[in-house]
Every structure is written in structure tokens, then in C-alpha cells.
Design a protein around this nucleic acid. Sequence first.
DNA 1: TGTACATCAGTGAACGCGCGTTCACTGATGTAC
DNA 2: TGTACATCAGTGAACGCGCGTTCACTGATGTAC
Lengths: 235, 235
Amino acid sequence: MAIHVTARQRARAQIIDEILEQARRQLASHGAASLSLRSIARELGMVSSAIYRYFESRDALLTTLIIETYDALGDEAERAAADSAGDADVERWVTTANAIRAWALAAPHEYMLVFGSPVPGYAAPDDTVAPGTRVTFALLSIVRDAAVAGRLTVHGDDVEPDALSHELARLAQVVDLPVPPAAMLATLAAWTQLFGLLGFEITNQTRGVVEDHGALFAATARLGARSIGLSDRPG
Amino acid sequence: MAIHVTARQRARAQIIDEILEQARRQLASHGAASLSLRSIARELGMVSSAIYRYFESRDALLTTLIIETYDALGDEAERAAADSAGDADVERWVTTANAIRAWALAAPHEYMLVFGSPVPGYAAPDDTVAPGTRVTFALLSIVRDAAVAGRLTVHGDDVEPDALSHELARLAQVVDLPVPPAAMLATLAAWTQLFGLLGFEITNQTRGVVEDHGALFAATARLGARSIGLSDRPG
DNA sequence: TGTACATCAGTGAACGCGCGTTCACTGATGTAC
DNA sequence: TGTACATCAGTGAACGCGCGTTCACTGATGTAC
């Protein structure tokens, strides 16, 4: 069995790419719900049934798109978190948040594919879960680095009620964050704030609120970072 | 011209209600994108063209649904804010946030109709803007009451950069909040945090993070309320 | 109070469209000997 | 290196479905005199 990439295999990989690229183009112009195999085939100059040589079904295509989208966003966030290592923790958080936002604004429909309304009739399989957590873990890694280095200043009282406090403690363990419940809670709040504002911006819900959405986003990210207890001084 | 409600008019109002009710049912089972006039008519035992006696087009139906959804949510939030008048400001914020969440969980697809991905091929007309702001203004009214009564403790430094600070000052004026930029920023952050977490919960993005989503939501709302500078003591 | 006319709700057929998926097929590429 | 066979990409027709919207129509309800 020769380990040898045949012309057929190269062509195949290339066509899969073209299908995905075309699918993303249609996502951008019509949204995920109306993504259609027939129109992708049409645009590619194929007959619609030919798509089935590459994807088992429309759902399989959607799954691939979702995974690739999560991975692209995850890459972006991980890179920002890694590249900013050594900066002040607050700056790392803001930088990574900004990277997420920049990616999302460049590909709003892909962002909405994974964070917007579920696509009707489509049930995301388990393969999408792991890639979906990458962005979040990139953000958490910044808090972890700070906590491990002893640079985290926990403020806020104990979390009420006790049951929630325990859940947060357990969660901190699961995601490997050596922080108390109050810091875990602040981290969740800062995390969800990021995606809340970003979602509002992308769906135009904040139109008119402010001119410079980038500045607002960065400022709220900074606020969140400080409430987590991240440090303003470089490590 | 007699001011007299005829049987025909009563029947008409009733059928419009039935159409909307059926539309909401379909929203719940299949999502907004695949909402169809034909299936609504079918379910109501009418012929599809009969719907056109009541709604000009599918888009007109969607617009009505969106406006009614915004209004239902707005009602809920305004009632919570009004009913809690006299409670501590922090509690009012949390109560109102919880009311928003309760409504959203009871009607997740309607929530997603207005806060999720835009419906493909549908452009929201201007009539939807004003009802859309009601939830937000209900929350803002709590901050306003606190500020007017001098119960707001602004913390946090001046907002950077200056341009954003000015924008926030202008925004505070537009929405009639007598608060400095830092408090305006914290308010926006708390506001978007609410909807960020709620969106995550509804789209199941926070599955596994925590068991008691209600407790988490309330706790982050309380955190946000305190970061705005709302008071823990009843006014 | 009764009649003539206007308004309106609902029908049923039709137009023209798009969709996902299956299937038997042709012809080109790759593999084993 | 050449031949025989297996694999695979792509075709084109078909199935069965659903959609929004228009239109000429019937028959019931409402209004003006």
C-alpha cells in the first residue's frame, strides 16, 4: 500500500473545500436555514446529486461547517491568548476578547450559525461539542495563568446560595481553575457579557447606542476582566 | 356611523388571534425560518389563500409576531420593575432580570425570534424598533430611580478613551439617566451580560456548566447590579 | 321594516418555484498481477 | 510495461414534497335608503 496522494485524492480534497467555501458564501447571503445543496451544486457547476459523493446529507454538511466555524474561532482566540502571554492579565483578556469580536464581525453569519438560533430540523451531533468549547477555554486559560501565578485578586463576598457556591467550586475544578467560587462566578459573568454584547452588535440590537462599538466592547471587556480580579500589571 | 362591533368584526379579531396563536405554535416546533402560511391555514382548517384576508404577506405576519413578542416581554419586565418599586435597587434589578428569564424560558422560540439570528429574507421594519426597546428601558428605569434618589454609588475610574466617555455621557442623556460615563458603562455591561447568559442557556451552550441555571443567572444579575452601583438597602 | 347594493370571508385551482434524496448509468482514474 | 478489474466522480431523470402568492368565484353579512 503506497502512501501516495493520487490525483483523484487531491481533486477530492479540493472539491470538498470548494463546496464548503460555497456553503459559507450562501450562509453569508441567506442564513443557515436556507442553505441548500442544490444551489451549492448549481454554483459549482455540478449536478445536485454529485454533492452526495462528498457529503452524506445536508446535515452532514452543516455539521462540518459548524465544526470548522468553532475551530476557526477557537484558533483565533487561542492564538490571541498565547500571543499575549507576558502582558498584563487584564490586557490579555481584552486582547482575546477583541480577537473574538474581530473574527465574528468578519464572519457574522458563521458566528450566528453557532451562537444564533438553532437551525430548524437540525440536531447538532456530539462531534460539535468539543470544538465548541475552545473559545471559552482560551479565555479561561488567561484566568488560570493569573491564578496559578498568584496574581488574581478575588473580590466580592461569598457566593449565595450555598448550593450555587458548591456548584461553582465543582465547576472550577472541572475546568481546572484554582479559584474560589466568587472568582468563578465573575469569570462566567465576564464571559457571557462578551458574547451578549457581541450578539447584540451583530444582530444590530445596539444600533444607535454608541458610534464606536469597538471601544465599547473593549471597555466592557476590561470591566469584566477587572471584576474577575485579573491584574493590570504585566506578570 | 354607528360605533358598533359587528359579528363580522368580532369573528375577524378572533381569527387573527387564532392565526397568531397557531403561528407561535409553529415557531415553537420548527423555528421562525420555516414558519409557513400554508401550514398555519391547514391547521386552522382554512385554505391557504384565506390567510391573505388577514395578513398581507408572510412578512407582515412575522412583523406582527415580532412586535407582539417584544411587547409581551416588555410588559413582563415593566411589571417586574414597577411591582418591585420600594425594594432595594439591587433586588429590583435581580427581580426584573428573573422575570425576563422566566418569560424567555416559557417561550424560547419567541425569544429567539427577536434575539436570535435574523430570519433569512426578512427585513424588520421600523415599527419593531420602539417595542424592542421596552425591556431595556424597564431595566434602565431601575438605575434611573436609584440615581435620581441619590442612591447610586458610582465606582470605577473614568472611562477610557475620552471619545467613548463622551459617547456614554451623550447616551446617558438620550436615555435620561443622570449618571456619569462609568455608571453608564457598567449598566450596559450588566444589561448585555443578562442577555448573553440567557441566550447561552436557551441555546443550550451552558449545558453542563452548572445544574441550577436559575441560581447562576440570579447571582450574575446581582453581580451586575452591584457593579452598576445599585444599593442593597431598600429606598 | 324591507329591499338593493356593497363589502367582505373563504374557496379552489393554478403559477412557478425550490428543495433533499435515490438510482441506474457512463466514463475516467487507480490497483494488482 | 501492459492488461483486467475495481473503484470512484459525475450525470440526468425521477419521486414526492412544500412553499408564497394571485385570481375569479360564491355566498354570507352589513349598510343606506
